[in-house]
Amino acid sequence: MQRRIIQTIFLLLVCTRMMAQDSSLMKMMDDAVAESQQGQVVTGTFKATQIVNLPTVESPGKKSLQFMIMHRFGKLNGGAYELFGLDNASIRFALDYGITDRFSVGLGRSSVDKTFDGSLKYKLLQQKQTGMPVSVSLYGLITNYTQRYTDKPYLDARYRTAYTTQVIIAKKFTPAFSFEVVPSWIHYNLTPTPEDKNDLFAVSAGGRLKFTKRMSINAEYNYLARNQVVSTKVYDAISGGIDIETGGHVFQLVFTNASGMVGPYYLAKTDGSWGKGDIYFGFNITRNFNFKK
């Protein structure tokens, strides 16, 4: 009888040891996976490189070229005579190229003021599963407008140039919801009147909410600190839209009160008011081309 008990206990011990070993192996595997998960960079904070006009932390990957068409029709309050703005249009073409996965350069041309722009974007910090809570990208943009003004012969290239610097701080809170805050500093080499400030400051906030895997609702608010632009009445640019992603394309259907599509224009020259119905319907289309192998 006693032997029986010893035997049973021994067998039990052996069995539990074996089971313990098995589960510890599974635990080891889980730990190893969890460990590598911790340092993992959070990706897909936004689908596109801009919410509507406001840049996001995203940039084209290494050796990938993004072609973008930004298009805004005229104001909705133009009424039936203007076919609710569809008779008019302004457009910006842009090419952005990823030199590395974190650094991209861009060139663009807007029809508003016949403006050329060049830009740099650098992903300074990337949000991680644990640790780094936010992604931070730096965005620098130089604009030069080439619209001819026969009455202003003094306008040389230097006077026509403006600089926009933005720090984009973004967080992907859930797989569906991302939000970003963007302080901006705009410097005009020449302002319309001496009363207008050469250095302007703005703070923007924007976000996206995915409602299917490939579609999201986006909105952005660009707050321009008051009393900086005094010669003309300007409004904060408020824009909203829907992203639709189809393979290599992202379509963005947007409504905005800003006709300009680059920093100095939408941040500080938005003359449309949502309240008065100065709303532009438009779209952004991006297409990616790859040069890797």
């Binding site: 595997m29 889980d30 996976v33 590598s36 998960q37 993992q40 990706t43 990957g61 990938s64």
Partner: peptide
């Protein structure tokens, strides 16, 4: 037994990833 994290798959093109 085999365990992997989907995000550790590296693609040639970032967009594919």
């Amino acid at each position: 037994a085999l365990t992997l994290l989907q995000k550790n798959f590296l693609f040639e093109k970032q967009l594919m990833q």
